[in-house]
Simulated assay, not measured.
Amino acid sequence: MSQVADKIRDLRDNEGRAALIGYLPVGYPSVEGSIEAARALIEAGADILELGVPYTDPVMDGETIQYAVQEALEGGVRLRDVFTVIRAISDLGAPVLVMTYFNPIFHYGLRRFAQELVEAGGAGLITPDLTPDAAQDWIDVANEFDLDKVFLVAPSSTTERLELTAAASRGFVYAASTMGVTGERATLGTRAEELVGRTREAGAEIVCVGLGVSREEQARDVGRYADGVIVGSAFVRPLSAEGPFDQRLAAMSDVARALAHGVRTARK
């Protein structure tokens, strides 16, 4: 059973709304700081959490997340710290996915990583640089350990690619709202809604939208048609501001509450 899919279905069926899915990088500004940030984000309204694995070549991440990831790496964060953070927030009841480029877990060992992720309480992986047709080794391991496999689609994806991704994914299909890297955007346009519709037609039950959502009105708009609204840079940016860490946490929580309100009122 998928923790993530069950959570999204529960929110859809019992509250009539989409899920707010929040991203934070592990180890920023420190491992302990990322634990505090993750707890604060869930308490402020995030339904599901994505924990990012810092990587030396984050080609799909925008400036805000690249900065945070680099700071985490320079601070000495390691892949195993992901499990520490998951354990520290497991009492809050929010499913946790790990967002990672494939290289770190490949070198760590797929079965070793999967086993330790299960033991920590994690739900699965989002692998932005891995396509289903190149992922059979990971798919086999994920199936063995009953973990979610979240793959991405984009506005440029063909119908064949959408069908392949929908069939391979478990948890949800991640619909990238636009071509390009992560980051906040002034507008999202209509391509995201069209992509969600096409992905559902290709066989996906649950489709969540990310890349660019940063304001309450955007969360409300995406929450009308998507099963989940994914937000990253808008949560990381307040943590990168000047001032004491408790003030930065409070600022991030304010952003989360506003976005959560947008998602919760989208279909009313």
Rank of each mutant, 00 (worst) to 15 (best):
Val82Cys: 15
Val229Met: 12
Arg9Glu: 05
Thr199Pro: 12
Val229Gly: 12
Arg161Val: 03
Ser156Met: 04
Val231Ser: 10
Asn143Lys: 15
Gly189Phe: 02
Asp129Trp: 04
Tyr67Arg: 15
Val150Arg: 05
Ala46Gln: 01
Ala166Cys: 09
Ser90Phe: 01
Val53Pro: 07
Arg185Cys: 11
Val150Phe: 01
Gly180Tyr: 06
Gln66Cys: 12
Ser177Tyr: 02
Phe235Ile: 14
Arg267Ser: 01
Gly203Arg: 11
Lys149Val: 13
Ile86Asn: 09
Leu117Trp: 07
Pro244Tyr: 01
Trp138Gln: 10
Val213Trp: 01
Ile8Tyr: 04
Met179Trp: 00
Val141His: 08
Ala176Asp: 02
Arg248Ser: 04
Arg112Trp: 01
Leu162Arg: 14
Ile21His: 00
Glu193Ala: 14
Asp10Tyr: 13
Gly262Asp: 03
Gly189Ala: 03
Glu242Ile: 00
Ser177Phe: 04
Tyr28Val: 02
Leu20Ser: 03
Glu50Pro: 10
Val31Arg: 03
Gly183Lys: 10
Gly75Leu: 04
Ala202Asp: 08
Thr199Arg: 11
Val153Cys: 08
Gly228Val: 11
Asp254Pro: 03
Pro244Cys: 05
Glu144Tyr: 04
Ile86His: 08
Pro132Lys: 04
Glu63Met: 14
Ala46Arg: 00
Asp227Tyr: 12
Tyr101Gly: 01
Arg198Asp: 13
Pro25His: 04
Arg191Ala: 15
Val231Phe: 08
Tyr108Gln: 07
Thr158Pro: 01
Asp13Ser: 15
Gln66Gly: 14
Tyr101Phe: 12
Gly122Leu: 07
Tyr55Cys: 10
Ser253Arg: 13
Leu51Tyr: 00
Glu216Arg: 15
Val263Trp: 03
Gln218Asn: 05
Lys7Arg: 15
Gln136Cys: 03
Ala37Met: 08
Cys208Gly: 14
Thr64Glu: 09
Glu194Gly: 06
Val69Trp: 00
Glu15Asn: 13
Asp246Tyr: 14
Glu43Ser: 13
Arg248Gln: 04
Val222Arg: 07
Ile139Asn: 01
Val96Arg: 09
Ile139Leu: 15
Leu162Gln: 06
Phe102Leu: 09
Thr64Ala: 15
Val4Arg: 12
Gly75Met: 06
Leu92Asn: 07
Ala5His: 02
Ile89His: 05
Glu194Trp: 01
Leu110Cys: 09
Phe245Trp: 12
His261Pro: 00
Arg257Pro: 05
Gly197Lys: 13
Leu195Ile: 05
